[in-house]
Write a protein that binds this DNA or RNA. Structure first.
Lengths: 316, 316
DNA sequence: GCCTCCTTTTTACATATGTTCTATATAGTT
DNA sequence: AACTATATAGAACATATGTAAAAAGGAGGC
């Protein structure tokens, strides 16, 4: 316990230092002691909670979530977007904006970027600013998905992003899912397709979305999966996918009949990309995100506050 | 005004620096920027009051005053803030800070918190740190007060405090003072209003300000009371109010014409709340505080040295 | 009164932080 | 598209702060 005299003196020093902006040297001179005494006094004042430092901003909540996510899942970065009572659509847009911002700040050294598909990534690309960044190439991470909603296809997003970056892009002239594994094999032997996929696996940065195939699933919306398919996936223990590659609760690839028909990079290849940025919004995707984290596919996560909270709660 | 991205980044840096004790060098490395950027960010955060340094100033004198106040008025706690030659505005801010600090250290078990209105409580809320405290609900203790100075209304303060605590808040969609007692009755019968007031009466902690209606009165400032009204109150022996509930020298409720028009919790209800924290600054309020203490409404008092001295002197 | 042990202060050094100036990038304008 | 104005980042330097070890002061024992 400190004496009153000492307490007074600590308060006085603290005030001079923190409120009046004096240097320790000046305070020492004024009080007629050596500087280290002031240095130690300030330490003591902090120890005894005479001085307390608060960080005061609305973003404190989400920044704390980010730190916990980074620590808990060994992420390189996590960006948590506050939901603050907004509708899912608005939150999704905010997440996309945050993703765009993050990408633009971390794109410096990248020469090759891969992009998957989906509505969230579409929003991200639309939010991306136009900036000259020569010598960059964008690769689609999987083929197209038929005629519907062309604007969210991997190829299309690669094209749009390349336009915004002033770079070039490759195309995967192939369906995301071939009609049979045999057809897939044949397509995969084609040089145009094979070469692009090979390169796609070596990008510096990959942008991926995550889905829950059972709830509000774009895959179902566009008619790629029907109820039968979903039932099959459920039986196999699938909880999510990234670019048509389905995985289970632990993030392990699930060998469904689809898997052999998909034209796109594999989960294994994805894991080997140095920087995989997952962009995801909507509470129903929490389980899928958790699984993908367990599978160690993702290095950077951009997500909304609600998923972030659920992820941490689920992994207590 | 700073953008969300920038505030987020400043908070992140400040957090690593002040809470986790990283050096600027380490932070710079982690974020992939040069060290001066971190140095400048921290300066910016200080300028924008994102980083706040609280010096817990107490002297033998104030601690003695606290002890005497606690004994003399049977208070659970008293916090006396030294004035040390500061201007009233600065003292008011210190009192608000001390109140915020006290609340944050005593909020642990609380599930429901009520808050009144006024400039002092507004400052308290603004000083309150952002800290996650799930499952807490904030209730306004009375309705709104017209269009002026919305930021000091009970509803608004409840909202702001809830935001800081990561909790939820209820609203009282009603004026603090209805145009007639008849209108008040009708409003009070509305479910939305009634239910909130019922719950407001059962909060674990209530935060209230105190006023002297005659001197530097916010009630007069915002045009809620005119000279006639004040004269009337004076005739009735009113010496102060808490949330539009006027009381006399002994703390007894005064049945003015206003009383039947107020939409807010009664003094009787306030007295039944386990922990009522009164936060008050400015010598002109001494008499009001004394009366409220006699009325036994308050359990914890946060006040400045000057009022504290006068309270003890008056009740020798 | 002198010595010893313990605490506190200071000196000198190591480290961390703040600042200036230059280089680079960005935005706005013709 | 080229230019200028403006902002921003980084390298190098200046200053401030933290810390270990030596010195000084002070209390208790003989």
């Amino acid at each position: 316990m400190l004496s009153w005299e000492e307490r007074r003196s600590l308060v006085k020093i603290a005030n001079l230092y923190y409120n009046d902006g004096w240097t320790q040297e000046q305070i020492a001179k004024k009080l007629g002691v050596s500087r280290p005494v002031i240095s130690k006094s300030l330490q003591k004042a902090r120890e005894h909670k005479i001085i307390e430092i608060f960080i005061k901003d609305e973003t404190v909540h989400t920044v704390n979530l980010e730190k916990k996510l980074e620590e808990h899942f060994g992420l390189e970065d996590a960006i948590v977007v506050p939901i603050s009572g907004q509708t899912p659509d608005v939150v999704k847009l905010s997440v996309a904006q945050a993703g765009a911002y993050y990408l633009s700040k971390n794109i410096k050294k990248a020469k090759k970027i891969g992009i998957s598909w989906g509505t969230t990534l579409e929003a991200l690309v639309q939010e991306y600013p136009y900036e000259m960044k020569k010598n960059i190439t964008i690769f689609p991470l999987e083929g197209g998905l038929g005629r519907k909603k062309v604007e969210i296809h991997s190829n299309q997003l690669a094209y749009e992003l390349a336009k915004r970056l002033g770079g070039t892009c490759s195309y995967l002239y192939a369906p995301a899912m071939a009609e049979s594994s045999e057809l897939r094999e044949r397509l995969m032997k084609m040089d145009d397709i094979n070469a692009v996929l090979q390169e796609a696996a070596t990008v510096d940065i990959a942008l991926v979305g995550l889905s829950n195939p059972y709830v509000q699933s774009t895959l179902e919306d566009i008619g790629y999966l029907n109820q039968n398919d979903l039932e099959q996936l459920r039986q196999l223990g699938v909880v999510g996918d990234m670019g048509f590659r389905f995985f289970d609760l632990n993030g392990n690839p699930v060998n469904s009949s689809f898997n052999k028909k998909v034209i796109g990079i594999s989960l294994e290849q994805l894991r080997n990309i140095k920087k995989v940025i997952g962009v995801v919004s909507g509470a129903h995707k929490a389980e899928s995100v958790l699984a993908s984290l367990k599978g160690n596919y993702i290095n950077v996560l951009v997500l909304d506050e609600q998923i972030a909270t659920e992820l941490l709660y689920a992994s207590e």
